[in-house]
């Protein structure tokens, strides 16, 4: 099983450090995860702690495309960037961004049962109790509303 951790384009030191901490790694292994892929952006952390028996840990600053990781992951742990919320997801809001609107979104989507939220301190527990089957599924992408909006503005027949 694959756990994919992503911080997006910027840095989120606390999240990367938390994921690589003993309690979270223990929790992941206890739930049967054998692979951990971390896209850490500009985050700073101690790279000496990234080997562990039974858990294959892969580190990427950036990846040309995260699509495959999202598709293959059994669990995604990430900031609440819009690109990541269609997946079995635990959101850890990044408190250091200019305006922490990510929390508003994560709260709204957690309220509709589309994802789980967690603080840094609770991450190990959140991993332990995470059950993707209990999450509500998203509607597939429907571009017709936006297409109608632009066509209407440009005077095309709908």
């Amino acid at each position: 099983m694959l756990c994919f951790v992503t911080v997006g384009t910027f840095s989120f030191d606390l999240l990367v450090r938390a994921v690589l901490s003993e309690p979270v790694l223990d929790a992941l292994q206890a739930r049967g995860y054998t692979r951990l892929v971390i896209q850490y952006g500009d985050s700073e952390f101690d790279t000496s702690v990234v080997t562990r028996t039974g858990l294959d840990i892969e580190l990427w600053a950036r990846k040309p495309s995260l699509d495959q990781d999202f598709r293959r992951a059994d669990l995604v742990i990430g900031h609440a960037g819009a690109g990541t919320i269609l997946d079995p997801l635990i959101v850890v809001p990044n408190e250091s961004l200019l305006h922490n609107h990510q929390l508003e979104l994560a709260t709204a989507l957690a309220a509709s049962n589309h994802l789980r939220t967690s603080t840094i301190a609770d991450l190990a527990h959140s991993v332990t109790v995470f059950d993707p089957a209990a999450l509500a599924t998203f509607e597939p992408f429907d571009g017709s509303r936006f297409r109608a909006l632009v066509d209407e503005e440009m005077g095309f027949q709908l």
Binding site: L98, H101, E104, T107, L149, E153
Partner: peptide, 17 residues
């Protein structure tokens, strides 16, 4: 050009800057 601004899906309660 005509301009259309789409506020991010990530904005629930408050507008972005």
């Amino acid at each position: 050009p005509k301009t259309i601004y789409i506020e991010s899906f990530a904005r629930v309660e408050s507008l972005s800057l």
